[in-house]
Simulated assay, not measured.
Amino acid sequence: MLFSQADRARIAAAIADAESRTAGEIVVIVSTAPQRYPATALSIAVLAALVLPLIAVLLGWSPAVLFADWGDTSATGRALRQIEAFVAVQTLVFGFALALVQFGGLARRLTPHGLRRDRVHRDATLQFKARGLEATAGRTGILIYVDEPEHVAEIIADEGIFTRVAPDDWADTITALTDGIKAGRAADGMVEAIARAGAVLAQHVPVMAGDINELPDGLIEI
Rank of each mutant, 00 (worst) to 15 (best):
5 Q>C: 05
5 Q>W: 09
12 A>E: 15
19 E>N: 03
22 T>S: 12
28 V>R: 02
29 I>W: 03
32 T>K: 01
35 Q>P: 00
35 Q>A: 15
36 R>S: 11
42 L>F: 10
44 I>E: 01
48 A>T: 08
49 A>S: 15
50 L>F: 04
51 V>L: 14
51 V>M: 09
52 L>F: 12
52 L>I: 13
55 I>Y: 05
57 V>M: 08
57 V>E: 08
62 S>M: 03
63 P>E: 08
65 V>L: 07
65 V>K: 07
65 V>H: 08
68 A>G: 10
71 G>F: 06
73 T>R: 14
75 A>Y: 05
77 G>E: 02
79 A>V: 08
82 Q>S: 15
84 E>D: 11
86 F>G: 04
87 V>Q: 02
90 Q>C: 14
90 Q>A: 15
94 F>P: 02
96 F>W: 11
97 A>S: 15
97 A>D: 09
99 A>H: 07
100 L>N: 04
101 V>Y: 00
101 V>W: 03
111 T>I: 12
113 H>A: 13
115 L>M: 15
121 H>T: 14
121 H>P: 02
123 D>H: 07
124 A>D: 00
129 K>Y: 10
131 R>W: 09
132 G>K: 04
135 A>M: 10
139 R>M: 11
145 Y>W: 08
147 D>R: 05
147 D>S: 14
148 E>T: 11
150 E>M: 14
152 V>L: 11
152 V>C: 11
154 E>D: 12
155 I>P: 00
161 I>S: 03
164 R>N: 06
165 V>L: 05
166 A>S: 14
169 D>P: 00
169 D>W: 05
172 D>R: 13
175 T>P: 00
176 A>L: 13
177 L>I: 09
181 I>F: 00
181 I>N: 02
183 A>S: 12
183 A>D: 11
183 A>Q: 14
185 R>M: 11
185 R>T: 10
187 A>M: 07
190 M>D: 07
191 V>G: 10
192 E>Y: 09
193 A>S: 11
194 I>V: 15
195 A>Y: 06
196 R>K: 15
200 V>L: 13
201 L>F: 04
216 P>E: 06
217 D>P: 03
218 G>L: 07
219 L>R: 02
219 L>A: 05
222 I>L: 12
222 I>E: 10
